[in-house]
């Protein structure tokens, strides 16, 4: 494919995102709710945490509250994929526009992607708003290695997009997206240690955390931005005379997982759209 065609495709996705953003701005309560809702949850969990606090309750010299903050930021990215893609398809099914959208002369990959970009654009202010609210409530803030942390977020987004396509395929097949979205979110909240350090989990739960790929994204991001050692991988690895530090191993893992998810997601999504079109089940819910 020519570069010009690629650029046109990217422009198309942005145009679709703009159109979807316009629709979401038509619902001002929803827009305001995003900010207030998050501030309130931060206040609720922070107040609960304070009831348990003791002076020596630090992990690698860092307050657990900061694990909550950066875990939460990463969680917003993952949660956006789950709700924007799964919930978006479901919404289009309910309002009866999904078939029309898929009949449009554009690639079937673009529509979920545009939905996701719309949500990410909408959430941009949140990534500044949440740390500020957190700092107001707890008085704590650490942000080290910002460029590398942003790079990890970028790689994570590739992985999440791949997962988003997988999830979209599942929604097209299973229909009831809200249920699966809730299950996924709760699994991530508990085993992905979004609100607490991984070290707070009992050993048997930690085993499950290590199996969930998203845990490594949360861990790598937190380790990088807080300037601490990763919690999920604690040993260094010697390869060909070189020693790979735990953080480097985690970086390798997140790159590999992102590639696998992206390749798998694209292929499964395409197949499920073709199948739904053939069976005529695209619009049913």
């Amino acid at each position: 494919m020519h570069i010009r065609e690629k650029i046109n495709d990217i422009k198309l996705i942005f145009r679709m995102s703009k159109y979807l953003l316009k629709i979401s701005l038509r619902y001002p309560v929803n827009f305001v709710a995003d900010f207030i809702e998050l501030a309130l949850w931060v206040a609720i969990f922070t107040t609960a945490v304070l009831l348990f606090s003791s002076p020596d309750g630090k992990v690698q010299g860092v307050s657990p509250a900061l694990f909550t903050l950066w875990g939460f930021i990463m969680f917003i990215f993952i949660s956006d994929v789950i709700w924007a893609i799964g919930g978006g398809l479901r919404y289009d099914q309910m309002t009866g526009i999904l078939e029309q959208n898929f009949l449009a002369p554009i690639s079937e990959y673009y529509y979920p992607l545009a939905r996701l970009f719309r949500v990410y654009i909408r959430d941009l202010p949140l990534f500044f708003f949440v740390p500020i609210v957190f700092w107001i409530f707890t008085g704590e803030f650490i942000a080290k290695n910002i460029l590398l942390s942003l790079y990890i977020v970028g790689i994570s987004i590739f992985c999440f997009i791949g997962f988003g396509y997988l999830y979209a395929a599942m929604v097209l097949r299973m229909k009831r997206s809200a249920l699966v979205s809730n299950i996924l979110q709760f699994i991530l909240m508990i085993f992905g240690a979004v609100f607490y350090p991984f070290s707070a989990l009992p050993d048997n739960m930690l085993l499950i955390s290590k199996v969930i790929p998203f845990s490594y994204y949360i861990d790598a991001f937190r380790a990088c931005i807080l300037g601490i050692q990763p919690e999920l991988i604690e040993i260094s690895l010697g390869v060909g005379g070189m020693t790979l530090s735990p953080f480097l191993i985690e970086l390798i893992i997140i790159h590999i997982v992102a590639f696998i998810f992206l390749a798998l997601g694209l292929s499964v999504y395409r197949r499920s759209v073709i199948k739904a079109k053939m069976e005529g089940t695209l619009h049913t819910y």
């Binding site: 309750g57 657990p64 609100f195």
Partner: peptide, 14 residues
């Protein structure tokens, strides 16, 4: 699940 979050958070903090 919802009640597990502050409990585990409490263990982490304490």
């Amino acid at each position: 699940v919802f009640s597990v979050i502050p409990i585990v958070l409490g263990w982490a903090v304490a």
